[in-house]
Structure formats: C-alpha cells, structure tokens
Computed example of a mutant assay.
Amino acid sequence: MLYYLSLFTGDISFLNIFSYITFRTGAAIVTSFLLTLLIGPKVVAKLRSYKIQQIEREYGPASHLSKSGTPTMGGILIFLSLVVSVLLWARWDSNYIWLLLFTTVTLGIAGVMDDYTKLVKKNPEGMKSSIKLAIQLFTAVVVVGYLALNPPNGNYTTSLIIPYMSKMFVDLSVFYFAFAMLVIVGSSNATNLTDGLDGLASGCMVFTAATYAIFAYLAGNVNFADYLKIIYVPGAGEITVFMGALIGACLGFLWFNAYPAQVFMGDTSSLFLGGVIGTAALCVKQELLLPIAGGIFVLETLSVMLQMGYFKLTHGKRLFKMAPIHHHFELLGVPEPKVIVRFWIVGAMLMLLALASLKIR
C-alpha cells in the first residue's frame, strides 16, 4: 500500500524511496518482526488462558513430556504479522502477491482446523487427513491453474531450469502441472514434519525464504536475469517483499519460540509456510532449487518415508531411533538446543549452496 506514495514523487521527491523493492523489503522485515514482538505477549497469554496447549503423545521422546501445557497455535502470530506487513509494503497490483496471500490463507485455514480439532476437540489425530489433503490439493490446483494461464515466462511454461548448468532445461510438457502441484503439497507437508523442536522450523524457514527473496529480486530484473542466465520473470521483484515479510515474521516468532519455547506454531502456520515457499519456487521458475535451499525440510520428510518403508520391509525394525530425524539425534543423546542450532547451520550452508548456482553455470 505504501508503495503508492511514490506516485507523489513530483511533489515530494523523498517519496520515491517507496518505489524501491530493496527499501520495501527491508521495511517489510522490520515491520513484521516488530509487529510480532508487539502482539506476541498478548497472543501467548490469550492462548494460555484458552488452554490451547501442547499435549505430548506417548510415542514422542520422553524429554518432550515437560513441554506439555505449552501454548500452541502460535503460528497465528506469523500469519497476522506477515499479512499486515505484506499489505503495507507490497504493490497491490501484483498478481504474485495475491497468489502468495491466497496460499497463505487457504493453507492457514487448514492448519487452524487441524489444530482446533487436536487441541479444542481433544482429538489427537487432528482433522481427517483426507480433508487436509483436499485443501492442499485445492490450493495447488488454483495456484498451478493460474500459473498455467498466466505463466511467469511464456517461453518456459512447462520447463524446468537445471541448477548449476548453463541454460539447460527439461520440458515436462503436461506432466509439469502435476509436478508443480506436488511441489506445493510436498513443501507444505515437509515444513509440517520439521516443526518438532523449539525454533527448528521457523529458523530453517528464514534461510529458505532468504534464498527465494534473492532469486525473486534477480529474476524480476531483466539485466540481472540475463547476466546470471536465469529465467526472467516480469514483476517477480514483489515476491522479494513478501519473502522479506515472511523472514521478519519468522524471526519475531523465534523470539518466543526459541528454546525453551513459550509457544509453539502448530499446524496453524507450518502448513502455509511450506506452501508459500513452494509457490514462490514456481513463480520464479526455480523449482529444482527447492530441494537444495529447503534441504532440511527434504531431509526430515525423507527420514519419515525411509522409516516407514524400512519398518514394513523388515516387519517391525527401525532404521532410525525415531523419525523425523531430529528426534533420532535427540535419542542419541544430543541436547535439543544443539540439534536445533546444528540444523540451522546446515540450513545456512544449503542457502549458500543454492545461491552458488547463480555463478556455477
């Protein structure tokens, strides 16, 4: 919204600063961060008064039993600060902004419904997995359908750019759309699985969002895109502002979610955080970079899949002590704070590895 102040630059030259994506991205980070700090104590207190509390199930690590009673559904903090900051600093005429907000809202609703079923209706299994999947698929169909009709770059509608290779593409034809839907649904569920330790998911999300903020900025600039040999996406720069707001919201949430957590995010935000990153990857045409930039989330998901497969093949044996893999390290005796920080370090290294693809081509 504040972008439109730049239209009055002829009267007040200073207002031109609101036209710069870099300025608005920085402002979006600060705004969402400060807003989270401002409303955080009241939201946490309200959740506690409503007894919206984490209930550790019997098959979780024994060390997590002490977390019982900690308020959850704290993801509402990320949701509110993100949406407000985006509406303040992003251009309202950007279709990418509304596409990302749509993903945020629909998957946010799914997360709230799941948490409500678990914590208020006292059903530990949450809402039916079929309903959750239906909402995720609906979101993916709308996003992918829109991008099919309004491709980021019409020359590469169904093509994937191969990271670290100079102008090498793979055209998936009609199969691209099924792949794109898998990106959104898979990213959403991967983030949900990672949300198991204090600050783990939100901290790792900062690095992944920062990666796509940079790629969106570069893809939206025709000169940078041409020089770096990435796909030019007109208008992608506004995605940078959205990612900035997401980074600030996650950092603000970490203020309350860092070990020992005062509040957990719950499915309320873990579902939409992953979905938003998946949508951003599709919009900037860097789909294959997602397993690198979001490598921690991929690792967590693979550990669950491997655990389940190994369990069935060996008739009850386990590959890991517990899945997702962050619990495996806990049960090996690594303290929870150390597991979290080490995963953050790996996340930061993966971000740098993803960014290295800009020059290794």
Rank of each mutant, 00 (worst) to 15 (best):
5 L>C: 08
6 S>M: 10
7 L>R: 13
8 F>V: 07
8 F>Y: 15
10 G>Y: 14
11 D>W: 12
11 D>M: 10
13 S>T: 14
14 F>P: 04
19 S>C: 05
20 Y>E: 09
25 T>V: 05
44 V>Y: 13
45 A>V: 06
45 A>G: 13
51 K>C: 09
60 G>Y: 11
68 S>F: 07
70 T>F: 04
81 S>G: 09
87 L>P: 07
98 W>N: 05
99 L>S: 09
106 T>I: 15
108 G>S: 09
121 K>T: 08
124 P>L: 08
134 A>S: 14
137 L>R: 06
138 F>A: 15
140 A>D: 01
141 V>E: 13
144 V>H: 01
145 G>Q: 10
145 G>T: 11
146 Y>S: 07
147 L>V: 09
151 P>V: 11
152 P>E: 10
159 S>E: 13
169 F>T: 08
181 M>S: 08
183 V>K: 00
183 V>I: 15
188 S>Q: 03
192 N>Q: 09
193 L>T: 00
202 S>N: 05
207 F>R: 03
210 A>T: 14
210 A>D: 03
210 A>V: 15
213 A>I: 12
220 G>Q: 01
220 G>K: 00
221 N>K: 08
221 N>G: 06
222 V>Y: 14
224 F>E: 15
225 A>H: 01
228 L>A: 12
229 K>W: 05
240 T>K: 04
242 F>A: 14
243 M>S: 11
244 G>C: 07
247 I>L: 10
250 C>K: 01
254 L>S: 04
257 N>W: 08
265 M>R: 02
269 S>G: 09
272 F>Q: 01
272 F>R: 01
276 V>K: 01
281 A>D: 02
284 V>T: 02
288 L>D: 04
291 P>M: 12
297 F>Q: 08
306 L>Y: 09
308 M>Q: 12
318 R>A: 10
321 K>I: 10
322 M>K: 00
325 I>K: 00
329 F>A: 02
333 G>Y: 09
333 G>A: 07
335 P>S: 08
339 V>D: 00
339 V>T: 01
343 F>S: 00
348 A>K: 02
351 M>L: 13
352 L>C: 13
352 L>V: 13
352 L>F: 14
353 L>D: 08
